[in-house]
Amino acid sequence: MNTHPNPTAPWPRFAVLGAGAVGGYYGGLLARAGVPVVLIGRPAFVAAVQAQGGLRLHTATFDACIPVAVASDAQAAAGADVVLVCVKSGDTEAAGAALRPHLGADTVVLSLQNGVDNAQRLARVLGRPVVPVVVYVAAGVEAPGYVRHHGRGELVLAPFAGAERVQAALAHAEVPTSVSTQVPQALWSKLVVNCAYNALSAIAARPYGWLWAQPGVPALLDQVVQECVAVAAAEGIALDAAALHTEVERIAHSMATQLSSTARDLLRGHPTEIDHLNGHVVARAHAHGMSAPVNQALTTLVHVLQRARAEAAA
């Protein structure tokens, strides 16, 4: 069934910059639905997709190799109506610089990234507005060109001109979306949950359910949440602390077997996003003359582990 708002008009052309777990998942769904899309990723990703005849996307309802255009250069975004930026937070400025020469005057750029400030950072590099998007999906890269979906998948978009057309294309790809003026609050709420689990999962190399069952961990996570809520308030973002405590506990049960993205990055020897998660809370706390000692400790421990792994691999 065609869900296009104007059945006689073509679907918008998408480019996905950063074909990891998030980019691969949404890009794969768009391609599977027949929406024109190109996935821009690392050479190993491109080689794998070309060798196997498509992106392998494994969900609860299908496991398929989806034919899709791929490239390793941001130049492939030229001509796109919509660009989904899905790179790691530490790569935001570099991605923006690579993308900037290839954007059309009317191209819509959406940031589907962790953290709370990527859209602003990207907008500064691009010299144009960027739409912040809250991403609620559990997915992982099993191997180059192979993305596995573990749950959820909805997107919450900040308002922008032309949102209906983008939403229609995503709906056709079976991606639930909504538009909200509360995206800053939602990004901060997601950041708090990430701060609770990402670093600790990486330090212990254990999933959320195992962590929650350890003595002292629920109280530690409560401290993380309290610090984050206080810093958010100083930033002008009011968060519901009680709801966040409940959400942290819920995730321990609903995503009991999930390793955090920071844990997966550490295990693979990749740079982590810790400075844009717990580290961001610490930096903003210091900017307001505050402290966030638990977040500081978690950030430092991840840095130590990252350095130790790098030295061991050298």
Score class of each variant (00 low, 15 high):
Glu235Asp: 05
His245Phe: 15
Pro7His: 00
Gly23Phe: 00
Val131Gly: 02
Pro43Asn: 00
Ala285Phe: 09
Gln182Thr: 12
Tyr26Ser: 06
Ile40Asp: 02
Ala48Gly: 10
Ala312Ser: 07
Ala44Glu: 15
His288Gln: 14
Arg307Tyr: 05
Asp106Lys: 14
Gln75Phe: 09
Gln167Met: 15
Gln185Pro: 02
Arg268Met: 14
Gly23Thr: 03
Pro184Met: 12
Gln50Asp: 05
Ser260Lys: 12
Thr59Val: 13
Gly96Val: 05
Arg100Cys: 05
Ala297Lys: 02
Phe62Lys: 04
Val82Lys: 08
Ser111Thr: 07
Gln113Glu: 02
His276Val: 01
Arg13Tyr: 06
Val302Tyr: 08
Asp63His: 14
Arg309Trp: 06
Leu220Tyr: 11
Ile251Gln: 00
Pro129Glu: 10
Gly27Ala: 12
Ala143Ile: 03
Ala204Gln: 15
His280Ile: 01
Leu220Glu: 11
Thr177Pro: 15
Ser178Phe: 11
Ala186Pro: 08
Pro176Ser: 00
Val134Arg: 08
Thr246Ser: 13
Leu211Lys: 09
Gly41Ser: 11
Ala186Thr: 12
Ala163Cys: 13
Val281Thr: 05
Leu266Ser: 02
Val16Gln: 06
Arg307Asn: 11
Gln167Cys: 15
Ala242Ser: 11
Thr8Cys: 02
Leu259Arg: 15
Gln50Cys: 04
Gly151Thr: 02
Gly54Glu: 12
Leu220Lys: 03
Asn194Leu: 08
Leu301Trp: 11
Gln223Thr: 08
Gly90Cys: 10
Leu103Trp: 04
Leu29Asp: 01
Gln167Pro: 15
Gln167Ile: 10
Ala314Arg: 13
Pro218Arg: 07
Val183Glu: 13
Ala310Lys: 06
Leu305Arg: 07
Pro293Asp: 09
Asp106Thr: 12
Arg32Val: 13
Ala163Thr: 09
Pro129Arg: 15
Ala95Pro: 01
Pro36Lys: 03
Gln226Tyr: 03
His245Gly: 10
Pro12Met: 00
Val116Cys: 04
Ala60Asn: 08
Gly115Leu: 02
Leu57Val: 13
Gly28Ser: 09
Ser178Met: 15
Val225Ala: 02
Val16Asp: 01
Pro293Leu: 11
Gln258Trp: 03
Ala252Glu: 02
Gly79Asp: 13
Asp73Gly: 07
Glu174Gln: 12
His276Lys: 00
Val82Thr: 10
Ala123Ser: 14
Ala283Glu: 12
Asp91Trp: 04
Val37Ser: 03
Gly54Tyr: 10
Cys65Ala: 15
Ala283Asp: 11
Tyr197Val: 01
Val304Glu: 01
Val38Ile: 04
Arg309Glu: 06
His280Phe: 05
Thr272Ser: 09
Val133Ser: 00
Thr177Cys: 15
Ser180Asn: 10
Ala297Gln: 06
Pro132Thr: 12
Arg284Tyr: 08
Arg206Cys: 12
Thr3Val: 08
Arg32Pro: 11
